[in-house]
Design a protein around this nucleic acid. Structure first.
Lengths: 66, 66
DNA sequence: AAGAAATGTAAAGTATGTTTGTCATATTGA
DNA sequence: TCAATATGACAAACATACTTTACATTTCTT
């Protein structure tokens, strides 16, 4: 699964830690999602979606390997 | 987290097992998501989104408890 | 260039998703 | 009504998400 987190974060000028605090997870969790080390739960994706005011589908997308 | 799975399934006339097979999970996984027993991964949400041709946000939504 | 802030990553532990198997109940259709 | 099909739910085992701590590396600011 791919994601635009880094880009969306830059648009809103948020650090990984800022975003983490906004949605109530650890900074490492954001980092791990961004670097593709793991796939977030749908609740997390929805919270991220709310922060960036974009749909989950606009932020996350399936790859062939999924 | 709430979801419209049951309604969307009815619209497309799919059983839990049909949907499960389409996205490659077990029937119990679909059942558990539908009845709110657990929150799916974002990959699963995106696959479900693809089946119903609706965004993840249209199918799943946050509740205050999230 | 130097110090501060931001990021990447790893290990260990806890929590939660997912599968398989199984059974009970509800719903549908002849 | 009877049988078939669909759904809800539980338990055990396993996989993966997530936290915390900690440290190294990169990027930013001056």
């Amino acid at each position: 699964m791919k994601n635009n987190l880094k880009i969306e974060r830059r648009i809103k000028n948020l650090t990984q830690e800022d975003l983490a605090k906004m949605i109530g997870v650890s900074r490492q969790t954001i980092n791990s999602i961004e670097t593709g080390r793991y796939v977030p739960s749908t609740i997390l994706a929805l919270k991220i979606s709310a922060v960036f005011e974009k749909s989950v589908n606009e932020i996350f997308s399936l790859e062939v390997s999924d």
